[in-house]
């Protein structure tokens, strides 16, 4: 979440609660509902690293609020983040390790592992279908994210079939 908050602060200075709202507004249903405590902890770390700085703003009848803004160093870090290619998904996942190792010990057979994993992927896909149907058509960011997750799952399922053909 560090860099996500930093990016929002590079757009405009904000206090913690405004960041929570900005996350919700930008990502719609696509961001796990951010917890305000977590946001303050993250801001504290960013401040310690010199990527953001805070100023106290006086409020009438209320305690001062801290408004955070992005520093020049923060901008440099963001630029690096944006310029770097992002790691792709990891294929040698825990399931693959099970598929290779579990049959060696006799604790599970490959066909059963593959079948269980297929059901699991399909049930995730069912959830994504439901979610897509429930998501407002104008929540473009959430819909894109759902579609991306579906394409990943499709690839996982195709790959599962390849594993079955080769290993069964």
């Amino acid at each position: 979440m560090r860099l996500h908050l930093l990016a929002l602060l590079a757009k405009e200075p904000a206090h913690g609660y405004e960041l929570k709202q900005a996350l919700e507004q930008t990502f719609g249903g696509a961001y796990p509902s951010p917890n305000i405590g977590q946001i303050y902890v993250t801001l504290g770390r960013l401040e310690k690293d010199g990527l953001v700085r805070a100023v106290d703003v006086e409020q009438s009848n209320r305690p001062n609020k801290k408004v955070y803004y992005c520093t020049a160093k923060g901008r440099d870090v963001l630029t690096l983040w944006a310029d770097e290619p992002t790691e792709g998904p990891r294929v040698r996942d825990e399931f693959f390790m099970k598929l290779v190792l579990a049959p060696l010990t006799g604790i599970a057979d490959r066909m059963a592992l593959i079948n269980r994993q297929r059901r699991h992927y399909l049930s995730l896909m069912g959830d994504l279908n439901d979610l897509q149907a429930r998501t407002a058509p104008d929540d473009r960011v959430a819909l894109l994210l759902i579609e991306g997750a579906m394409l990943h799952l499709q690839a996982d399922l195709d790959w599962l079939e390849r594993c079955q053909e080769d290993l069964a």
């Binding site: 249903g29 059901r119 049930s123 995730l124 998501t135 994210l145």
Partner: peptide, 13 residues
Amino acid sequence: ITRRRTGTAGAVI
């Protein structure tokens, strides 16, 4: 094929 999860995209993905 069971369905379990509900919630927002962010919680599933």
